Each structure stands twice: as C-alpha cells, then as structure tokens.
Amino acid sequence: MKFEPKSEKTRAWIIETTAGIFNKKGYAGTSISDLTEATGMTKGAIYGNFENKEDIAVAAFEYNLKVRIGIIRSALEKAATYREKLLLYADIYRPSRKTPFPEGGCPMLNTAVEADDTHELLREKAAQALENSRRFLEELVNKGMAAGEFVQGINARKFATGMLSMIEGGIMLAGTTKKNKDMELVMDAVADLVNGICV
C-alpha cells in the first residue's frame, strides 16, 4: 500500500524546518532527536507524514536544491550577456557576496561527499543535480557561441565540467580550510576561464 502523508502542509513545514539540519549534519549524522527538537513534534507525528528518515532526507535535499536553483536563476536573470551569466553563476559563490544559500552550504557537495559510498539513493539524487548543473552551464556556453560572444569550436561540455568542478572544489577547499580567501581565489580563476573564451 502506498504511503500517504497525514497533511501535505505539515509535511512541507517539516521539510523546510529540517532541511538545514540534514544539509549540515548529513543523513547519518541527523538523528530523530534532531528532528523532534527542531519541529517540536513527536516522532510519531513526524512519521505520520513521512515513511521513514530516508524519505525526509530526500525531501530535504530536494528542498535545499530548489532554493539553490532559485537563487542562481534569479541572479542570472539580471545578466544581459552569456558572459555575464557565466561570471555571475560563479560570482554568487564568493563569500564576500554573502549569498543566502541553504543553511550548511551547497546541498550537492554535502550530499555527494557523504553519500558516495554510503547511501545509493541520495548519491543518485546528488549525481543528477550535478549533471543538471553541468548541462545548464553547457547550454549557456552553446548559446554564447551562437550569439557570437564566445569563440567558436569550444567543447561546451568540457568547459562546463571544468567550471562546475572548480566551483564545487572551491566550496570544499574553503569549507575545509575555513579560509574565505581560498574561495575568492577559485572564483578569480573561474572568471579567467570565462573571460578566456570571449571574442
């Protein structure tokens, strides 16, 4: 029999309330006590709206991802050229900008690092999110070439893969060293990469 939550409104509130906890502590590190404390609900009340902890974790990841995507797309709408869009995509990760990303940072990186060898469903979710991000960047490069902004013949997928890897690697580096300057340096390198394909 298919699981049916008691209340979609309550379910959405639980997701929003616990999303930051899962993003910071991860699936394994988040306990039911963390969830009951954050929501003020009993274990039974929480599980009346979710099948299990995995169900909550997946929903929290999808919520955090949606917030991240919304922030990026909103920022890019203000850009007039594809060069500006690529530069802005990276620039919003600069610590100096103080972009209000989901609590705990990048949900793709956090989930991928934790789940790569421990939780297949979350690993698949993170992998799909990373692939979607790569395709988005690839599309910007292709559109930029078509508009005559970028030099012709660029391997858009290769470029997008490199750019995404630099950004996610920069997040990991800065998060580990606790030095915002590291992230700023990576974003400077990404800007050089983007400017290097402009006509």
Rank of each mutant, 00 (worst) to 15 (best):
K78D: 13
M1Y: 15
E124Y: 15
P100D: 12
L87I: 12
L109Q: 08
Y93V: 07
T30I: 13
F136E: 01
N155R: 14
N180G: 11
Y89G: 01
M187D: 04
G169Q: 05
E120C: 12
N132Y: 07
A189E: 03
K78F: 09
K181G: 01
Y47D: 02
I171A: 04
E184H: 02
A129Y: 00
K179V: 01
F3R: 14
R134S: 02
G20T: 07
E84M: 12
I56D: 04
Y27I: 14
E138Y: 03
G153Y: 03
T39D: 13
I32L: 12
R68L: 01
F136H: 03
V67I: 12
C106T: 02
M1P: 15
D55R: 07
E124Q: 15
E54A: 10
N155G: 09
G175F: 01
A147W: 03
V58Y: 06
M172A: 09
T17R: 13
F61S: 00
K158A: 15
I154G: 02
T161K: 10
G104A: 08
K181S: 08
I92L: 10
G29D: 15
F150D: 01
V141E: 05
N64H: 04
T118P: 10
E77N: 13
G29L: 15
V113I: 14
S96F: 09
M163S: 08
E62W: 07
Y82A: 06
F136A: 01
D116A: 14
K6N: 14
A115C: 11
L140S: 03
T30H: 11
L122T: 09
L130W: 02
Y89N: 02
L86H: 06
K24N: 13
E37N: 15
G29A: 12
N64C: 08
N64I: 06
E149Q: 09
G70V: 04
K181C: 00
S133A: 09
T36N: 11
E131L: 08
L185R: 03
M172G: 06
V141L: 07
Q152N: 10
Y27H: 14
A146Q: 14
E62K: 08
Q152D: 09
R83K: 15
V67H: 08
K24L: 10
A19D: 05
P102S: 13
K178I: 00
A28N: 10
D55C: 06
T42E: 13
K2T: 15
F101V: 04
Q152P: 11
E37F: 15
W13L: 15
A160M: 05
E168N: 04
G20W: 00
